[in-house]
Write a protein that binds this DNA or RNA. Structure first.
Lengths: 242, 242
DNA sequence: CGTGTCCTTGAAGCGCATCAATGTTGGTGG
DNA sequence: CCACCAACATTGATGCGCTTCAAGGACACG
């Protein structure tokens, strides 16, 4: 039933570096199965010590933290190809929760074998570190957004980052891509209120830069959007798949 | 002149896990030299492709990003024992700049040998990944602070995190520790204005929780501080030294 | 046809930024 | 030794960007 790594639909996308034959064999052996979860299902909980690791194959989700007072911070979005559970794998405890936004299918790995990555496949171990470094880079940029950008700049920044990822994943058609989140999710990611996020999205729509409704994000003027966001629009670096 | 890893002053501190004899030998071989830089000196620049990696031995510094409009986001602080340059090592480019706040002495490694970590010492490779995961965890918490905490909560959060690190580093005496930064640095870390940061520090001082002046941070009531910050006060996990 | 979820819009108020000025300290050169 | 200046901390006043409160509309679902 499960997809053979050899036929993994992700491998063909622009965003990802291709597997070597060696790596393919290694991962095939490492893969424990596949999991399908419905929209809204929690996958990992903050503080949990999951015995499993995942990589997203289809669907989208999000990572978030909850404060004692109930406020939620969305840490980032999960797209196909993302590796899930690194913190549990190395530290034994997740620093955030993970939840499916759409129905998702996930590739499942056994955490107990994680160490064999490092022992028997240095190149795969390096790839994991590479992913961790990219994530660190992204979180640093997010910090700069929450700390230093205005609401308009922040929303423009977020939409442009999302669209870049969409392009790399080749899910953009006619400058539109599926984007199945709620405005509340974006608000919680940017530290803004829902109301203000809504009004800010309206501004970007009025200015003919980007419009997002009914789960579809359309970018009309990427150049202007990135200009407002004070960010470059160069494509994302290729990343390994785990 | 350079400190022998065997006598590394960091190894004795609570915060760090001790080297195995093997690791000691390995790191000794890997270490290329020592570097001393004055306060205010830039060490790495955002976007640069540094041929060298470092770990801080003495002194403190900070990592920051600069936006095109000139605003600065401090990503985090650098304490003794911190590894510097991971992003350059794996991605070939730093996502932030690094600068010394006090005079610093750094352990220098050669980036070109980084790959041998993964090939010949799986446990050291794992440690690097562990550090990356901890960093990711911390940045997630920072994000939650900027996004979801008020100025008072944010400053309380920052001071409590700093003090926890100070305790683990064993530089706390009489509930005070050296903290040689400017208020502007803290403001830029929390996305607040200098003025408001100053006033907020005043509130915490008035409420007998924490006071910071003349480069010394004193915590009078850690429990209350953490309560305001909505964060736990449990000690930090031990971390490896690179 | 009621109920729940999400998006939208208006109105009021506060937390914070910004502006401005003064104080303090340490360094530097005449 | 003092005049001067630069860097940083402090404090008051003003105003705006945002949050919060509130209400209504659109759509899906049982």
């Amino acid at each position: 039933m499960a997809t053979d790594c050899k036929n993994c639909p992700l491998r063909r996308r622009d965003l990802f570096v291709e597997f070597s034959a060696e790596e393919l064999a290694f991962m095939r052996n490492f893969k424990a199965g596949e999991l399908v979860i419905d929209a809204g299902t929690p996958l990992l909980m903050e503080g949990s010590n999951s015995p499993q690791l995942f990589t997203a194959l289809h669907g989208m989700g999000l990572r978030y933290k909850t404060l004692p007072n109930g406020r939620r911070q969305v840490v980032n979005l999960i797209y196909p190809g993302d590796f899930i559970g690194l913190q549990a794998a190395v530290m034994g405890e997740m620093g955030h929760s993970v939840e499916a936004t759409t129905r998702m299918t996930l590739c499942v790995f056994d955490r107990s074998e994680f160490w064999t990555f490092f022992k028997s496949s240095p190149s795969r171990a390096f790839d994991i570190t590479w992913l961790a470094a990219i994530e660190e880079h992204f979180l640093g940029s997010s910090l700069a957004t929450l700390g230093q950008r205005t609401a308009l700049q922040a929303v423009a920044w977020a939409l442009s980052r999302i669209f870049l990822r969409g392009q790399a994943l080749e899910i953009v058609r006619n400058s539109s891509m599926p984007f199945p989140y709620r405005q509340q999710d974006l608000a919680d990611a940017l530290g803004l209120s829902l109301v203000h996020t809504n009004k800010t999205l309206g501004k970007l729509r009025d200015r003919q830069m980007a419009s997002w409704s009914d789960g579809v994000l359309q970018i009309n003027n990427m150049t202007k959007l990135c200009e407002v966001a004070q960010v470059s629009d160069e494509p994302l670096p290729r990343r390994p798949i785990m």
